[in-house]
Simulated assay, not measured.
Amino acid sequence: MTGDVVIQRVALPSRTASARLIVVVRAPDAAAYAPVLDVLVDAGIQSLELTLSTPGTLEALPQLRERYDGVADVGVGTVTDADQLTAAIDSGARYIVTPITSAELVTQSTGAGVPIVPGGFTPTELFTSWAAGASAVKVFPAGRLGPGYAADLRGPFPDLEFVPSGGVDLESADAWLRAGAVAVSVGGPLLGDAFAGGDAQALRRRAEAFVALCRREPA
């Protein structure tokens, strides 16, 4: 019977959960991470999702985790198969993010005691991951849907915890949080030209603005 099934769900790291902000960091190469991450962490960012689409991410992860130990959670995103997930966990990822719906990856990650936030677009995809034991589900690409989608999800799935990702800027981040998102996942609108020689102070100001917004309690 369904009622007899016990779902194993690993909570998001407490620092990430309290910050309500995950910054997705895609770089041309892992060697470019540290200078940008230093600015982000100094501006108050407490959760960093490094992507497997950045060459060298897993090799650099142990050193980056040590570098930001005690101030920021370092997770790994763009995970799409079991081998990648195993490698990310073995390299020290504090949490896992996927762009896809896979109950198998959820089970694998939770079995290892590592939080996972799988991506999905439709109610069926999102609920599949949540029912499998996801820590939260990633509404992706959120920019195609808008914060009003949260109300649609809350109807049939009142307990579902979700994180919008993809096209989330400062204005829509506020709207998503007010709509009940447990956190927002932000990339380009915050990073801007950071990996193309952009001004570090401008990056800091953008990061501080997102941090301040996500620390506010929704009205």
Rank of each mutant, 00 (worst) to 15 (best):
V97N: 05
A93P: 00
A179K: 00
G187V: 04
W176S: 04
W130H: 08
T128V: 09
P158D: 10
L170H: 14
D81Y: 05
S165W: 06
T101S: 15
A82P: 01
T107Q: 13
R94E: 12
R144Y: 02
L126A: 05
R144I: 12
G111C: 12
G198Q: 05
S129T: 06
K138A: 11
R178L: 07
A173Y: 09
D73Q: 09
D174T: 14
L126N: 01
R65L: 03
A112C: 13
G56F: 12
F140D: 05
L170E: 06
A181T: 03
E59G: 10
Q63L: 11
F195K: 07
T107V: 15
A136G: 09
V114K: 04
G120P: 01
I100N: 14
P62G: 00
V186P: 00
A173M: 05
G187R: 09
R154P: 00
R94F: 07
S135T: 15
S102H: 02
I96V: 15
G119D: 06
P156E: 08
S91D: 04
D73Y: 14
Y68L: 12
E171L: 14
L145M: 15
D83S: 11
S172N: 12
L145T: 10
G188Y: 12
P156L: 08
G119K: 04
G111W: 15
V186H: 02
T110G: 11
V97D: 06
E171D: 15
G120Q: 05
P115Y: 04
F162I: 02
V114I: 15
G111I: 13
S172I: 15
E161I: 03
G167C: 10
A150E: 05
T57F: 07
L153Y: 03
S129W: 07
A151R: 14
V71K: 13
A136W: 00
F127H: 11
A173D: 04
V186R: 01
E171N: 15
L191Y: 13
S185Y: 08
A60N: 01
V137A: 04
G187W: 05
T86W: 11
V184K: 06
R178C: 11
D69F: 10
G70P: 10
I89G: 02
T57L: 05
E66P: 00
F127G: 00
E161W: 01
L105Y: 07
R65S: 08
Y149R: 07
R178M: 11
V184C: 06
I100K: 10
T128F: 01
L170S: 07
V74I: 15
A194I: 09
D90T: 08
L85N: 09
L64H: 00
G155Q: 08
V117T: 14
L105G: 11
S102K: 00
G166H: 13
